[in-house]
Amino acid sequence: MLYLILAIVLSAILTFYRVIKGPSVPDRIAAMNSIGVMFLLVLVLLSYYFERKIFIDVALIYGVFLFINVLVMSKYFSEPEKGGVGD
């Protein structure tokens, strides 16, 4: 079980390359999204490794925050629409 968790962590670290290098902002957001989902799965697997079922609740709350994170980031970084609702 430990090796499986380490494999997921390794793939998350590989994905982190795109966060550092990514030429544009959406690249970074997409990479952060996948890293978040990977660590959510790590939390679920850790609950079996340590035999504590409460980590699943933590994973659920983490998923909620991940969703809000992506929405807010993509709203905040985007440029205002031309001809849209300007002040």
């Binding site: 544009s24 902002v25 959406p26 957001i29 997409a30 999204n33 989902v37 991940l66 969703f67 992506v70 929405l71 993509s74 970084f77 985007s78 440029e79 629409e81």
Partner: peptide, 15 residues
């Protein structure tokens, strides 16, 4: 996650 991916894609389209 599908909604999040759609939001990112439309954001990149705007970008």
């Amino acid at each position: 996650n599908s909604i999040a991916i759609h939001v990112i894609a439309s954001f990149a389209d705007n970008y």
